[in-house]
Write a protein that binds this DNA or RNA. Structure first.
Lengths: 351, 351
DNA sequence: GTGTCGTCTGACATCGATGTCACGAAAACG
DNA sequence: CGTTTTCGTGACATCGATGTCAGACGACAC
């Protein structure tokens, strides 16, 4: 007869010990265990020791959620992060920066990808609200965030990143999209270019519109009339960017420079230039730096963002609010930086 | 006298409504609200409607944690993900894939970066355990995961990704590091190379050791005696990789090809080659594809991993376990793919 | 008209913890 | 030495929800 009643390997699920179990084993009241676990004062040294030993023996882990139910401040020590996609390099670095700040305070971070879907934004907020997060860091997708006011009124702070909120008055941390775009265009103009193409991201996205505005305004202040044929909007992946770039360069009167407004679009443009063998003839500045941008030839000039700083500042704002800061909403602009590497300094042939 | 008692903008925190509030407003018992919210049967249509209206009017959101306390299955509908860094492109894509599977089941994902710190692994597990996650997906950092057995025994499943677990018998989803490395070396040998340098990641990391083993074994089966001078280990960033590569190429008898075992290291090697003007003379294959690898010249050949598949499979395993699957632990290997682009096909000059 | 049944509903105990409070013992005070 | 304080401790109510159970009611069969 083989051992059917094997004690050590059979049980698929052992019950998770509670404070009561620890209390019983230590021979004390449940409240005393609570005191020891939470480091409250007025527990005899010997008692503390017994409780600790019992807790360790049972591998006891307190249930934060049960505790929060009764606890005065009711904090879940959890925040929620909503971004376009956790796989997007910019968002991923923002995430890492936020996590770093959160870790210092023993906060855990829920991350959710919205993929530019407005419905996903509401769903994600609801899901996190049911989990009672203490605060949100959000890349807004919807046109209007006023539906979030209820959460704010209940004391759950929210900070917007990358894009400005609409309909609510909350802290935001944004990149200087408009000024950055102007910098890019000014740089190209300074190298003699007047026919500068613009490869824009989805117009649905606020920052894309800001970059377009910067492009147009800088052209205007340089006294250059924009050529509608050189302005292409609503690009969001590199394949379409490649196709569009090839098309632009095949025009009878092609651009001599390109300002691409987003990471993937920049990669697509470079691919087109390489295919046509024009990478040393057409100037290119991209918004948002590309990994390995200094290994491509010519090396890629870019308007670099600072995701690390965006994330850190956003996290600091949420935690300040969680800590009770009730000062007026702040709008923090993180400047971009023109990274000069080569592709943006190709001079205009005619000039 | 200005309005000091402004009702609409003053209150910093409004109380969050509970089921009791909804019940009161709807004129029903609290249990009936619970029934409606959870879609339980046997509630009159009119009552359901009144409750719904009351809940909507108060913007009621159920408290999942309070519910789980009493609920029979006790699921928190939350899983934890531990990776090297959420900013690492490989991990970020794994994360996205896991999130996709989780979203289908209304699960939220906690992501934590360990940065190869063994202590961080234990801290993260403890933090998530206190939050009662239903499962873990972990990139192990510690040498021994047997301390996790308690969690497993309590019915919280764990799946390892990228690296094999040690000391516990759980599902794992790993890349074919060893075979991938052999593929890389075989490819270089096929192009006539015999002096192939190896740029290895931190030896502390299991996968790094596997890649090194693959490198050595493939050399051996090609009848090539490894030159210790060409094997450099413990590289983890691109600056040191650049320096080491420059050093190797300055040797009296330099390598004719390089196999770099990790993303950042590959970038560093390319930089060195470009600085020396040798990028068309020295063959290079990198483990793990680099973004924009097809825009660099020569285009970068690589052993590509499939993070999307790794993430999806890992998530499927965790959820299967959460659903009660008690079949033996499975080890799933996701194959790598050799991406031929140019840098790896540079022939050996002598041959 | 009466008994049985299914539907609809709410009172109450409970989940695992913390906040309040009261009590006994020891310490500090006069 | 009596009295006030402080310390150390546990009983109990409570947080916001769900599980159990019993009761009210109307429909239906006899």
């Amino acid at each position: 007869m083989t051992s059917m009643s094997d004690d050590t390997s059979m049980p698929p699920t052992a019950r998770r010990p509670t404070m009561r179990d620890v209390a019983q084993l230590a021979g004390v009241g449940i409240k005393t265990v609570s005191r020891v676990v939470n480091g409250e004062p007025n527990v005899a040294a010997g008692t503390t020791e017994r409780v600790r030993r019992a807790a360790a023996e049972l591998h006891y882990e307190p249930d934060m959620h049960a505790g929060n139910l009764r606890r005065a401040d009711g904090r879940s020590h959890t925040i929620g992060l909503l971004v376009s996609s956790v796989a997007n390099p910019f968002a991923a670095h923002v995430h890492r920066a936020i996590e770093r700040v959160a870790a210092e305070r023993d906060y855990a971070v829920f991350a959710t990808s919205l993929e530019e879907d407005p419905a996903a934004e509401r769903r994600a907020i609801a899901a996190l609200s049911r989990r009672r997060v203490d605060g949100y860091v959000v890349t807004p997708v919807q046109d209007d965030q006023s539906y979030l006011r209820v959460h704010l009124d209940r004391g759950t702070p929210l900070v917007c990143i990358d894009r400005e909120p609409a309909g609510i008055d909350v802290d935001s941390v944004v990149t200087s999209n408009y000024d950055g775009a102007r910098d890019a265009v000014r740089h190209l103009v300074a190298h003699g270019h007047r026919r500068i193409a613009f490869l824009g991201d989805l117009e649905r996205i606020l920052t894309a519109r800001h970059r377009r505005a910067g492009y147009l305004d800088e052209l205007a202040s340089a006294g250059i009339a924009p050529d509608p044929a050189l302005v292409v909007l609503d690009l969001h992946d590199d394949a379409s960017a490649t196709a569009v770039t090839r098309h632009l360069l095949a025009l009878p009167n092609p651009p001599t420079a390109i300002f691409s407004s987003q990471n993937l679009v920049t990669l697509g443009a470079i691919r087109a230039l390489q295919q046509l063998g024009l990478e040393y003839d057409i100037a290119l500045v991209g918004f948002d730096d590309v990994e390995a941008g200094d290994l491509v030839k010519p090396r890629v000039s870019a308007i670099a963002q600072d995701p690390d700083r965006v994330g850190r500042l956003a996290a600091e704002r949420v935690f300040a609010r969680i800590d009770g800061d009730v000062s007026p909403a702040r709008r923090i602009v993180v400047p971009t930086q023109l990274v000069v590497r080569g592709s943006g300094e190709i001079p205009c042939p005619g000039a």
